[in-house]
Simulated assay, not measured.
Amino acid sequence: MSAAACISSFPPPPIASAAPVPEMATIDVVVANQTPVIAAGAKSSCDEEVAVGGRTVRRPRAVARTLECERRAVGEGFALRRGIGRPELESLDPFISLDEFEFSPPAGFHDHPHRGFENVTYMLEGGFSYSDFSGHKGTINTGDVQWMTAGRGVVHAEMPSGHGVQRGINLWINLSSKDKMYSHLLLPCASLISRSNGGYYATVADSRSPCRAMIACRVEPRYQELASHDIPAAERDGVSVKVIAGEALGARSPLQTRTPALCLDVAMRPGARLRTPVPSGWSACAYVIDGEAVFGDGDGDASGEDAAGAHTFVVFGDDGGCADGVAARATERAAARFLLVAARPHGEAVVKDGPFVMNTREEVEQARDDYRNRRNGFEMAAGWSSDHTATAAAH
């Protein structure tokens, strides 16, 4: 929840003077997943067989790098510790940013737009209130999570819900190009667009006459919220896990993520150990919230690995696609709590500009123009302002 990224730099235009623009013909585009899948029990390119998608972790990921996340004040009442989105690690496909944030009045994020990513807010302490241009509003408190899919466009406000410091973790997950506003396709002009399994597919009829098509995708804003007591949890051998997204220790989250993802809040007693599967090929990382933990398959002291303390960000390697999970243990001298996140990368170009995450500079400029002119997903912003903004204007 970067102040620079979330606070809109685009003031609402005079709507009355905006010229109406015809809407583009719109269809949903479904692009088949081309990621190769290794069947369970099949031989991979690794030196030994690995259980892909299974429950047994045979080859845990090694730690590729660690970053200390220093507290940085950003304006009055707001501070953050940044893991992803800093000069040393600008992104980790598909993750755009990961912050531990703290804010208190008068800080807040007044009406601002988003497009092109999923915004995850997990509260560690206190709460924040939100409202958007569709009338969706509410408050999430300690232990609650909000998983918002911005898709083609959303305008909302987020404010601290009480006095004192509100603290949480904010994660931006990039969407595939097919889930943003526009998909640029090079199709034969004689292609036939047909509907199947809830999407549209192009059937090549004449490959001699290619033409470029820009198709608008109707990925509407979506909010999924889970109260702390509704987040599935499991406990085993001194390890407790809250499954925010994905599955672990037999517990599965009901959240449906647009980009396949895993998000776990892990708490470990001193000396406890955990091995949890993570699909090969996915990007994976961890942020230590409290205590200290050792990641990887070694014993820490014996292999030269150092314990990662509070506010340390850890990036895992993938061993050329051979690693099948993550291993962690708390040291004997302290408990540990960390957030483990992983997701399937898109392998696409990314251009991030403030509140927009698109694939090209032209698409970012289009998003900015759409917001200014209240079109292509931002229509409901015309004439809308949040209660927070209205209250601030009255004073």
Rank of each mutant, 00 (worst) to 15 (best):
V288M: 10
P260E: 08
A251S: 12
T257D: 06
P232G: 08
I244L: 15
S253G: 05
A284N: 03
G296A: 10
E292W: 00
A286L: 00
D265W: 01
V288A: 10
A267C: 04
T276R: 13
G271I: 11
K242W: 04
R275P: 01
G271S: 07
G281W: 14
Y287G: 00
P270H: 10
G246E: 01
Q256W: 09
R252V: 14
A272G: 06
I289E: 03
A248Q: 09
A233D: 00
L255G: 13
D265F: 09
A233N: 12
A233R: 15
S283P: 04
P232F: 10
A251R: 02
K242V: 03
P270D: 07
G281P: 14
D290L: 15
A272K: 06
E247I: 02
A233S: 15
S228Y: 10
V243I: 11
G271P: 08
V278F: 07
A261V: 01
D265S: 05
V243Q: 02
M268W: 03
P277H: 06
E247P: 00
A251Q: 07
V266C: 02
S253Q: 04
L264Y: 09
G238L: 04
A233W: 08
L264W: 08
L274S: 02
P270I: 11
P254W: 12
F295V: 11
A267N: 08
D265L: 02
I231M: 11
R236G: 00
P277T: 02
V266A: 05
A234E: 06
V239W: 03
A293I: 11
R273C: 13
G238V: 04
A245H: 05
Y287V: 01
S253P: 07
V294A: 12
D237I: 00
L264E: 06
T276W: 13
T259K: 03
V241S: 00
E235Y: 05
S228G: 09
A245G: 04
V294L: 15
M268K: 13
D297Q: 15
T257C: 13
S280I: 00
I244N: 04
A286I: 03
V288W: 13
R269H: 09
A234V: 02
G291D: 08
L255M: 14
D265Y: 05
V241W: 02
C263N: 12
L226V: 04
A267P: 00
G271F: 12
A234Q: 09
V278H: 04
A286E: 03
V278P: 10
A293W: 10
Y287H: 10
A267K: 14
D290W: 11
L264I: 06
I289K: 10
R236L: 07
H229F: 12
D290P: 00
D297V: 08
L274C: 03
P279I: 06
S253V: 07
K242C: 05
I231P: 03
G296Q: 14
L255W: 06
R236E: 14
L274D: 01
V278W: 08
G271Q: 11
D237Q: 15
L264V: 10
W282G: 07
